[in-house]
Design a protein around this nucleic acid. Structure first.
Lengths: 208, 208
DNA sequence: CTTGCACTTGACCGTTTAGTCAAGTAGGAT
DNA sequence: ATCCTACTTGACTAAACGGTCAAGTGCAAG
């Protein structure tokens, strides 16, 4: 029953690559097949539509990311260090992808969701599911930080949303401007939103 | 020499409307023509390509926005009040557009730029020009606020970028989730990034 | 009242799109 | 050795895409 070819994986990989290098609209079935060196008939053996392929590609990428995140957001690490490690990882990952794709790639989930906003409800629903899961890591961390006094946060859900929006914005801007700077500054800004200082110790651990 | 029909304007209007309701890829030449009740031949009388139309539509929208912004960011108003008025305006504008389009629309500039990131360099360049102009309003305001001590900002360019990225992120998230909440919270988050408190007086006017 | 030109019209073109299908091929299990 | 089925192939479709064009129409200025 074991998988006997890597065709499916090549298709997933080619899809992400095209979304990063160009855009969702550039990732046509023909272009994906060419990049993956797969004939169209094979494509439709593995996926019943392009929509399904895109969802599968995002989901595969998310599953891979989660391995890192589960390690980085380990409860055994002090909350602030988790956050620091996370933003460091984001920068390194984006640098790697930039080398591969030849440009700053940003967040594939929001890129795809923005590019098919009025239509393709299923794609958008899956993207929202992924992004909601992402938020949970930050939320848990903020709760832990609030509990041990290391993060001076008052309204946790609101802070999570602000951090999330800021991160998405920095990724989007990085992609549009093809610049790493917004992404490199992400930790600084996010820490400020959480009442922390990126370069130093927390501002207001003594506040309470 | 005066313009004798409103066909051109109807095309611009229909384009923005489709980008908001659906997405850039849904705004095909045929769809735009149908919505504007214009025949394709007329389309190509006014614009030599779809690319040119999209740029013209964004530019027209920006020119209209600028009228409000020049009023709101008047040097005669205290810097903090300018910012407050700006975020209020953003919320009201988005509410209006939501009623018209039937969904939360977000920022058309970044939506378009994200949707054609690898290709269509000219479109992206124009979007970047628009967004850079946008930043100047905030930059001037921060400088004025730093000068009169009302805004406790240290690194002005960095703060402008953070605020910009956060605003773009909130708009993007609002669009993806079809929710006004991220946009309604925009002022709160942006003020925090600038060391201000949205609901009250500045935190640290006394800091220096 | 006629001439000129901004504008309109609908038919048309070649290409690209997502998706189908019948006819294969090849490798693991029996 | 053969059978089964997962997988592959290339030719095919219909619709949608951006864009073109020759032949109009109607208003405004001379």
């Amino acid at each position: 029953m074991a998988r006997v070819t890597d065709t499916r994986d090549r298709l997933l990989e080619a899809t992400l690559q095209l979304i990063w290098e160009e855009s969702l609209s550039a990732a046509s079935v023909d272009a994906i097949c060419e990049k993956a060196e797969v004939r169209k008939g094979s494509f439709y053996h593995f996926f019943k539509s392009k929509e399904e392929l895109v969802i599968a590609a995002l989901e595969a990428h998310f599953a891979a990311s989660r391995v890192d995140w589960d390690r980085i957001f380990s409860s055994s690490v002090p909350p602030i260090e988790r956050l620091r490690a996370f933003f460091d990882l984001m920068v390194r990952k984006q640098q790697m992808k930039r080398e591969k794709a030849g440009r700053v790639v940003g967040c594939p989930y929001s890129s795809v969701a923005v590019s098919c906003c009025g239509e393709e409800q299923i794609v958008r629903d899956r993207v929202q599911g992924i992004l909601t899961t992402w938020k949970k890591y930050v939320e848990t961390t903020l709760r832990d930080g609030a509990a041990d006094g290391s993060i001076p946060v008052k309204d946790i859900p609101r802070t999570v949303e602000m951090v999330f929006n800021y991160v998405e914005g920095a990724m989007t801007t990085g992609r549009i401007q093809n610049s790493m700077r917004p992404i490199e500054n992400m930790g600084f800004g996010a820490f400020k939103l959480m009442g922390l200082e990126w370069d130093m110790a927390p501002i207001a651990a003594a506040k309470r």
